[in-house]
Write a protein that binds this DNA or RNA. Structure first.
Length: 501
RNA sequence: GGGCCGGUAGCUCAGUCGGUAGAGCAUUUGACUUUUAAUCAAAGGGUCGCGGGUUCGAGUCCCGCCCGGCUCACCA
């Protein structure tokens, strides 16, 4: 029998002992009077004397994190919502059954206590326990109390254990929730309507990516998990929902990295009667306020850099290429970066526009640490954006970068159905030449445009990446509760439990 | 997919030149009524990721595979 099985058997047997004392191993409702974080916040500043009179009575619950037993007394740390509070148990102050229960407690058990606040000789805020009850039994072993759980594979696979053992993790996901709530609130304040559009789509579009395929049995059709909600959201703009947004998952059948998870969360919003310049201003306001709501400040530390979301720089893609050109070679001029010949000499793509983007990604992207808006993209890589009035080879589009990552993408939406048809056909051509990520023709979308779409600005913001920036997380897996991993195979716990019955 | 790194007790980690598998925490037993990485005394606990190979002998060397991390490519 392995150690884990022995321990399981031992603790399973303890269930009977707990029940013999008149408690339930898997208890019922517990009406606590306050939470551990609230107590810590409210009473940490109070002195021992202030706590002594009048006494502060509390009824709390939580998971046992540490136990220090000293014969007829003991100290335990309970954890709740990522924070820890010490409780003090003394034989004289409990019933016989409660003290017997205390002696059976394992690290990881969930209990409820009543008692009063005091400070120990060493000054730690603690609860002097007067009654004790049992709420839930742990059967497996907790991770090490000092180092916590560090094995990243276990942290991602068993996120519940990560959340129990590493308090910072709870904080990260609470911040993620604040980010989403902040964006929702800000958009609502600006009269945007939240909508939900199909995730299972017969035609996929709105981005350059390979999709996941699934199948509907009754209709007997293949469907694609959406790579973007864009084309549906713009149909709604045609329909007169002038300001819409959606926060939900996109699915792209591509590689996994510290910046990519196959399913990821995007905010997309569309605003009629504005353009990409209007969205630049809006983006700045949204990001700045979100940083404040999530972290308390528009200025955040990320991986050794200081990012200031209250002051977003704006550069054209050409300016960025010139600006970030490597020090050790001849810096190009504006004439160079406009010259198709020069572009082809410095990249390997078919068209000058694609070359420019390739060069930009090579020389500038990873250096865009400060939040920066890059604008004026070539038409070839932007099949849904409106042409620039002065230069039809370019479109009115920008992307937002920070910490070397793209976190947003926006443009003035193409609303001319004739031009949209030509763009789709251009994409079909790329597709025939082997580009699996090129768009398909979406004729219903073209038909929608034929009814007239108002001039519109649209934008997507990657929520996972934004969360990385605002929680100082180096990997996207640290801001996704259950990132995609290969299945782990047989776990064996069911068999172990069966053996105990 | 390529390159590099890792997988040893439940957790965090050692393991020398190829020669009996180690520590701390956790667990069990005992002592201890303000401790705090509690302390003290004792005990139990291993599919060294999996499968081959070399060898008298493999955690250690070689080959293949599995899982993970970083990185490059691709992408947001």
């Amino acid at each position: 029998m392995s150690l884990e099985q022995e321990l399981l058997a031992q603790r399973h047997a303890r269930i009977r002992e707990i029940e013999a004392l008149g408690f339930r191993a898997y208890g019922q409702r517990f009406d606590f009077s306050t939470t551990i974080p609230t107590i810590l916040k409210e009473y940490t500043p109070k002195s021992a004397e202030e706590l002594a009179s009048p006494r502060v009575e509390v009824k709390i619950c939580g998971r046992i994190h540490t136990v220090r037993r000293m014969g007829k007394a003991g100290f335990l740390h309970l954890s709740q919502l990522g924070e820890r509070l010490q409780i003090y148990i003394k034989k004289d102050d409990l019933s016989e059954k409660e003290f017997a229960l205390y002696q059976l407690l394992d690290i990881g058990d969930i209990i409820g206590v009543t008692g009063y606040l005091f400070r120990t000789r060493t000054g730690e805020l603690s609860v002097h326990v007067q009654t004790l009850t049992f709420l839930s039994k742990i059967l497996l072993n907790m991770p090490e109390k000092w180092h916590g759980l560090e094995d990243v594979e276990i942290r991602y696979r068993q996120r519940y254990l990560d959340l129990i053992a590493n308090p910072d993790v709870q904080e990260t996901f609470v911040t993620r929730a604040k980010i989403i709530a902040s964006l929702r609130r800000q958009l609502e304040e600006r009269n945007f309507v939240e909508v939900e559009t199909p995730m299972m789509q017969p035609l996929y579009g709105g981005a350059a990516a390979r999709p996941f395929v699934t199948h509907h049995n009754t209709l007997d059709i293949d469907l694609f998990l959406r790579i973007a909600p864009e084309l549906y959201l713009k149909r709604l703009i045609v329909g007169g929902l002038d300001r819409v947004y959606e926060i939900n998952r996109n699915f792209r059948n591509e590689g996994i990295s510290t910046h990519h998870n196959p399913e990821f969360t995007m905010l997309e919003f569309y605003q009629a009667y504005t353009d990409y310049k209007g969205l630049m201003d809006l983006s700045g306001e949204l990001l700045c306020q979100t940083a404040i709501d999530a972290t308390g400040s528009p200025v955040v530390e990320y991986d050794g850099a200081t990012l200031d979301f209250s002051n977003i720089r704006r550069l054209t893609i050409r300016e960025a290429v010139i600006d970030f050109w490597p020090e050790n070679s001849t810096r190009p001029t504006m004439e160079n970066v406009k010259d198709p010949e020069w572009l082809k000499q410095n990249a390997h793509k078919a068209s000058p526009g694609e070359c420019l983007v390739e060069i930009f990604e090579r020389v500038a992207e990873s250096k865009l640490i400060q939040p920066t808006i890059i604008y004026e993209y070539p038409v070839e890589t932007s099949p849904l954006s409106k042409n620039n009035l002065d230069d039809p080879a370019f479109v009115d589009r920008f992307e937002i970068f920070a910490a070397g990552m793209e976190i947003g993408n926006a443009y003035t939406e193409l609303n001319d159905p004739q031009e949209q048809r030509r763009r789709f056909e251009m994409q079909l051509g790329m597709r025939e030449r082997g580009d699996e990520e090129a768009h398909q023709m979406d004729e219903d979308y073209v038909r929608a445009l034929c009814y007239g779409m108002p001039p519109t600005g649209g934008e997507g913001i990657g929520i996972d990446r934004l969360t990385m920036l605002l929680t100082n997380s180096k990997s996207i897996r640290d801001v996704i509760l259950f990132p995609l991993l290969r299945p782990e195979g047989n776990i064996g716990v069911a068999a172990d439990l069966r053996a105990l019955e």
